[in-house]
Design a protein around this nucleic acid. Structure first.
Lengths: 153, 153
DNA sequence: AGTCCTGCGCAATGTCCTTGCGAAGAACAC
DNA sequence: GTGTTCTTCGCAAGGACATTGCGCAGGACT
C-alpha cells in the first residue's frame, strides 16, 4: 500500500460524500484526466483503503425510528464464552454495531428498532436469548447529533 | 413515498452491499430490464429511502485503529446547554457518532483515534474542552464484532 | 549522458445510462 | 362486457462513460 498524496485524499473525501459519483466527474473535481483518476481509484480499492461502497438507507423511511444502546455483561471472559456470545449476536439483524469493550461491561451494542414494541420483541427474542449474559442495560437515543460514516481524513 | 415491493427490497439489499454496482448488473440480479431498474432506483433516491452512497474507508488503512466509547454528563439539561454542547461536539472530526441519551449519561459518543497518544490529544483538546461537561467516561473497544452500515430490510 | 521508474494525457472501443415510445395488465365505472 | 385510466414494463437509440494500450515527460540514481 503506497502512501496517500493530496489527490488521493481529495478523492477519498469526495467518495465518502458521494460514493456513486462517476469517474469522469470525480476526475474533473480533483483535476485529473479520467484515465488517471480511474487508475488511482483502482489502486485505492485494491490496496484496501476503500473497503467498499454502500447505499445509506434512511432508517426513518424504513420505519426504524428507535436506536438503543445496550450494555451487556457475560458470566465470564473465557475465550469459548466470548466466541459463543459473538456467534449468536451476529445473527440478530437489528444489531448494527457490537464491540468487545474494556471497562465495566463486556459488550456494547447499537440496536435499531421500529418502535418500543419492536424493541421489546428484540429484547425478548434475541438479546435475552444470547448465551452467557448476566446483565443487560438498555438506554435509548433521544436524538441523533452526529452519524458520520467515516472519520474525516 | 410509495410502498416498497419485493423488487425494491432486493435492490436495496444489493445496494447496501455494493453501492457502486452498475445499473445493468443490478437490473439483471433483480430480474428487470435496465430501463425499469433505472427508473425504480430513481424513485428510491428521490423518495428518500436511499439517503446517499458512501465509500467505506478502512479505518485501519488510514491508521485509525482505536475506537473509544465515551459517556458524557452535562451540568444541566436546559435547551441552551444542550445546544451549545452539540454545536461544539459537531466540530470534532474524530467523533463518528453522538446521541443524546436517556439514562445515566446525557450523551454517548463513538470516537476514532490513531493510537493512545492520539486519543489523549483528542481527549485533551476536544472532549475536555466541550462546554458544560461535568463527567467523561471513556471505554475502549477491544475488538469489533459487528459493524453494519444499515439495518437488514 | 544514460537508464529506470512512476504517473500523466490522449485516443479508441466496448459498455453503460437514460429517455421516448408503445404495449400489457390491473382497477374501476358505466 | 366494454371503455378508460394508471402503472409498470421492455425495446431501441443516442449520448455519455469506463477502461486499456500507447507514448511522453519528469525525477532518481549510476
Amino acid at each position: 500500500m503506497g502512501t496517500l498524496d493530496s489527490i488521493d485524499a481529495a478523492m477519498l473525501r469526495i467518495l465518502q460524500q458521494d460514493g456513486r459519483i462517476s469517474n469522469a466527474e470525480l476526475a474533473e473535481r480533483v483535476g485529473l484526466s479520467p484515465s488517471a483518476c480511474s487508475r488511482r481509484l483502482d489502486l485505492l480499492e485494491k490496496s484496501g483503503v476503500i473497503g467498499g461502497y454502500h447505499a445509506h438507507l434512511s432508517p426513518k423511511a424504513l420505519g426504524y425510528t428507535m436506536i438503543a444502546i445496550v450494555h451487556i455483561s457475560l458470566s465470564g471472559q473465557f475465550a469459548k464464552t466470548l466466541a459463543e456470545f459473538e456467534a449468536a449476536v451476529k445473527l440478530c439483524p437489528n444489531v448494527l454495531v457490537c464491540y468487545l469493550m474494556s471497562g465495566e461491561y463486556d459488550y456494547i451494542l447499537r440496536v435499531a428498532a421500529k418502535d418500543l414494541a419492536d424493541y421489546e420483541r428484540i429484547h425478548r427474542d434475541w438479546l435475552s436469548a444470547l448465551p452467557h449474559v448476566v446483565k443487560i442495560n438498555s438506554s435509548f437515543a433521544l436524538r441523533e447529533i452526529i452519524d458520520r460514516p467515516n472519520v474525516g481524513i
